[in-house]
Design a protein around this nucleic acid. Sequence first.
DNA 1: AGCGGGATTTTCT
DNA 2: GAAAATCCCGCTT
Length: 191
Amino acid sequence: MSFPDFLDQDSTSVARQLLGCEFVRQLNREEVRVRIVETESYDQADAASHSYKGQTPRNSVMFGPNGHLYVYFTYGMHYCCNVVTGQAGVGAGVLIRAVEPVSGQAVIQRRRPVAGVLVTNGPAKLCQALDIDKRLSGHDLRQSPLRLELGIRYRDDQVATATRVGISLAVDELRRFYVKDSAYVSKYARG
DNA sequence: AGCGGGATTTTCT
DNA sequence: GAAAATCCCGCTT
């Protein structure tokens, strides 16, 4: 598998295309592979984005080269991770909201001893499962110990578009994408 | 199935 | 000093 070649595009377009891509995490000689099934896009013109008010020490990774990982700490307790998109100098990225395990389930289970889909069906849960924290913020996803690879490709009829979760600004924008038939999605649109 | 609160600390006003 | 791109538990319908 190879590294995605579309990360220089608009973050909303990238968010759709990241569905089906895979994270490969090296943890103490063991490999964990997960497939991305839910994403949200953020960029500088977006009032809900960390980058909306310009570059700060916290969000500076979003303004760097695409293909790096932006990890932020929130609610006093949780880490969430983004794939940085677009051109350097512009603050944009895609929040990874849910993944489904492909291999290395035993390692995930050890880090998150909960049942079923609860292991990775949310942005902070998957960071806990994959041992992602601030140490990996700014990491280049072309390299170990955390790589991003092309995986499977979903057809448009397998993908739902929806509003984002957990924000109070720009709440109506359709910037969230998820795989309709995945049990690991954090929140399904009502209907 | 849905609501409400507590945990806990970084970041910016 | 308040809010935060969340999660988990307990209680109510």
